Computed example of a mutant assay.
Amino acid sequence: MQLWELEVRESVRQTLADYTAATDRSDLAALAACFGAEAVLEFTGGREPLVGPAAIEAGLGAAMGGPRDAGRPLPTFVRHHVASVRFVSVAADLVEASSYFSVHTDIGLDHWGRYRDVLVPVQQRWLFASRRIAVDGFSKDSLMAQ
């Protein structure tokens, strides 16, 4: 492996970490800043994809503020754990990666799933060109199930 590839991999890992930290802080502006100008955030399960940082920030904000089941409280904390980051392909102009995530809230393990990512270099950072989120399951007492 050459030095440029190590630098690319570490830059991609930083973007994954920045996204995770922003999500846990509910900092939607910082989360949206992890996406390129024409990036697509896609969810399995029929939700419309969000295109571009402004739409990503607005769409996630609307989803977080949307209607909830009367008996289900809001979580007081959210912690994402990302594991098994696998670089599918690494080139100087495009990286494909996959990983698994689990999310913990007040109830413990809340939900879990997979990320499938494509990142591209933008100035001095690597940003998402696309992120596909597949939630594989929710705990029966999930605070975040929609």
Rank of each mutant, 00 (worst) to 15 (best):
S26M: 11
V40A: 11
P121S: 11
R47S: 07
V103P: 01
G46K: 04
E57N: 02
R131S: 11
A29W: 06
L119V: 12
S98K: 05
E10I: 08
A62D: 08
E10R: 15
P73A: 10
P73T: 09
H80A: 04
G61K: 01
D141H: 14
V120P: 09
A21T: 14
Y115C: 08
V122H: 13
V95H: 02
D117H: 15
E7K: 14
G66A: 04
E48P: 00
E10K: 15
M64L: 11
F77V: 09
D117K: 13
L109S: 01
G113T: 08
T23I: 07
V118W: 10
T105P: 06
A55F: 00
Q123S: 15
S142Q: 07
V95L: 06
E48A: 14
F43H: 13
P73I: 07
L50S: 01
G45I: 03
A63I: 06
L143A: 04
R72A: 04
T20V: 10
G46Y: 01
L3S: 12
T105L: 06
F35P: 01
W4A: 10
A91C: 02
V82K: 00
G137H: 11
G52C: 00
Q14C: 09
A32E: 04
L74A: 15
P121G: 10
V85Q: 05
R114F: 07
P75H: 08
P75N: 07
P121L: 12
A62C: 00
S130Y: 12
L74N: 12
R9G: 03
V40M: 09
P53N: 01
E96H: 14
T15E: 03
L31N: 04
R125G: 10
R114G: 01
V82Y: 02
D117G: 13
R114N: 11
L60F: 04
G52F: 00
P121W: 11
A32R: 03
P75I: 06
G137L: 12
V40R: 14
G137F: 10
A62S: 07
S139G: 11
R79Q: 12
L41A: 05
A39T: 09
V78K: 08
Q123N: 15
G52P: 02
M144G: 01
F128M: 12
P73S: 10
A134R: 12
S98W: 00
R47L: 05
R131T: 09
A97R: 01
V8D: 01
D18H: 11
M64A: 12
M1W: 09
G52M: 00
H81N: 12
E42L: 05
P49W: 01
A32S: 06
K140R: 15
A83Y: 03
D136C: 13
G137V: 13
A39P: 04
A54C: 00
L143Y: 03
Q146P: 13
Q124V: 15
L31Y: 13
F43V: 04
T20R: 07
R9L: 03
P73K: 08
A55P: 02
V95M: 04
L28N: 03
V78T: 13
A54N: 00
E96K: 10
A63K: 03
W112N: 04
I56S: 00
W4K: 08
I107G: 05
P49F: 02
E7G: 13
F138R: 02
V88K: 06
L109E: 03
I56P: 02
C34K: 03
G36W: 04
I107T: 12
Y19C: 07
M64Q: 08
G137Q: 09
A39Q: 03
A92G: 06
T105C: 05
L6G: 14
K140D: 14
D106Y: 05
